[in-house]
Amino acid sequence: MNNALLLKLHRWTTLVFALPLIAIIFTGLILSVEPILQSRGLPAGMVDADRIVGLLQRYDPAGKARGFAINASGRQMRLMGVNAPTIDLATGEAATASDPVGDVLLWARRTHEHLLGYDWLVIGSTIAMVVIMIIGILMGLPRLRNSLAGWHKGAAWFTLPLLLLSPITGLFMAFGLTLSGPPPAATRAPLPLADAVRTIAQSHDVAHLSMIANRGGRMMARLYEGGELRAYSFTADGVTPLARNWPRLLHEGNWSALISGLLNVIVSVVLFGLLITGLLLWSRRKLRRRPQATTTANGTAATGAA
């Protein structure tokens, strides 16, 4: 295919989706640090099964909550599905101060996944990102030069596998593709939250617990083990690890928190840099054309007058 046509498609696809891509990439950069922060867990001795169960009984005496999530960096616990305050795990009382880091991460996740409620725009922009990369590949290997265009092309080609992996795994998540098959059928009624906490505490450190919640009629737990965020289901035999959802692990950087988190930071920075430099290259091209067009118009007018 003609490289000039490919370049035009590359530019215009970027221009059309520039604003949503800026939002998605920027929030992705923020979320890249979440595994690094959360995988460290809570300080030793801050929580155990009895303490978590006690907090559940205190703030959800009717047992209506469908789950809870623990924010290790902010040392807070939030109940799901009930009108209960955020709990300060250090004191056991309702949190009186907001957690700025947690608030930013929550905002970033909602924006990254839903973009002000326009989920279709997130999916469309992610597909556009893949298309932009494929067009860049079809244009062939670049000549690397010490210029803005040279750095733009070099950064894209040297990090290409990681760049492609990010939007592709995001699309897998959006369409529910896990590469691990469906989870095993539930063999028992969902455990009450308190019983689920006691059960998982028998074999795991609850200081690294991320959440326990009822998902689709199945009680599930997610916790960090060796830097990886693992998922477990509750069975008659206790807790059973679920098959790894590799698209999610790779996209969120939860397969090895420190390494994968840093890789996601690098990918986000490169993607943001490529988008900005691409827009700068386009604007430079437009600004160069305007004086030429003005000069040509003036010359034509002068000739006509003569």
Results as ranks from 00 to 15, higher is better:
Leu249Thr: 07
Leu249Pro: 00
Leu249Trp: 00
Leu249Glu: 09
Leu249Lys: 00
Leu249Phe: 02
His251Pro: 14
His251Leu: 07
His251Phe: 15
Glu252Phe: 09
Glu252Arg: 07
Glu252Asn: 04
Glu252Val: 07
Glu252Gly: 00
Glu252Cys: 01
Gly253Val: 10
Gly253Gln: 06
Gly253Ala: 08
Asn254Leu: 09
Asn254Ala: 13
Trp255Gly: 14
Trp255Thr: 00
Trp255Phe: 12
Ser256Thr: 14
Ser256Asp: 15
Ser256His: 13
Ser256Glu: 13
Ala257Ser: 13
Ala257Thr: 07
Ala257Met: 07
Ala257Asn: 05
Ala257His: 07
Ala257Pro: 04
Ala257Ile: 07
Leu258His: 14
Ile259Phe: 12
Ile259Pro: 00
Ile259Arg: 01
Ile259Gly: 02
Ser260Phe: 15
Ser260Arg: 03
Ser260Cys: 09
Leu262Gly: 00
Leu262Lys: 01
Leu262Glu: 00
Leu262Ser: 02
Leu262Tyr: 08
Leu263Asp: 06
Leu263Arg: 02
Leu263Phe: 10
Leu263Trp: 10
Asn264Trp: 08
Val265Ala: 04
Val265Pro: 06
Ile266Tyr: 07
Val267Asn: 14
Val267Gly: 12
Val267Lys: 12
Ser268Gln: 00
Ser268Lys: 03
Ser268Ala: 15
Val269Glu: 06
Val269Asp: 03
Val270Glu: 03
Val270Ser: 01
Leu271His: 01
Leu271Cys: 11
Phe272Thr: 01
Phe272Glu: 01
Phe272Lys: 00
Gly273Glu: 03
Gly273Cys: 05
Gly273Lys: 03
Gly273Tyr: 10
Gly273Thr: 11
Leu274Met: 13
Leu274Lys: 11
Leu274Glu: 12
Leu274Thr: 12
Leu275Thr: 14
Leu275Gly: 13
Leu275Met: 14
Ile276Gly: 00
Thr277Met: 11
Thr277Lys: 08
Gly278Leu: 01
Gly278Cys: 00
Gly278Ser: 09
Leu279Ala: 14
Leu279Trp: 13
Leu279Pro: 03
Leu279Gln: 04
Leu279Glu: 03
Leu279Lys: 02
Leu280Ile: 11
Leu280Lys: 00
Leu280Tyr: 04
Leu281Val: 02
Leu281Phe: 09
Leu281Ser: 09
Leu281Met: 12
Leu281Tyr: 08
Trp282Ile: 13
Trp282Thr: 15
Trp282Gln: 05
Ser283Pro: 00
Arg284Ser: 06
Arg284Asp: 10
Arg285Leu: 04
Arg285Cys: 06
Arg285Glu: 09
Lys286Thr: 06
Lys286Glu: 15
Lys286Arg: 14
Leu287Lys: 07
Arg288His: 15
Arg288Asp: 12
Arg288Leu: 14
Arg289Asn: 08
Arg290Asp: 08
Arg290Ser: 05
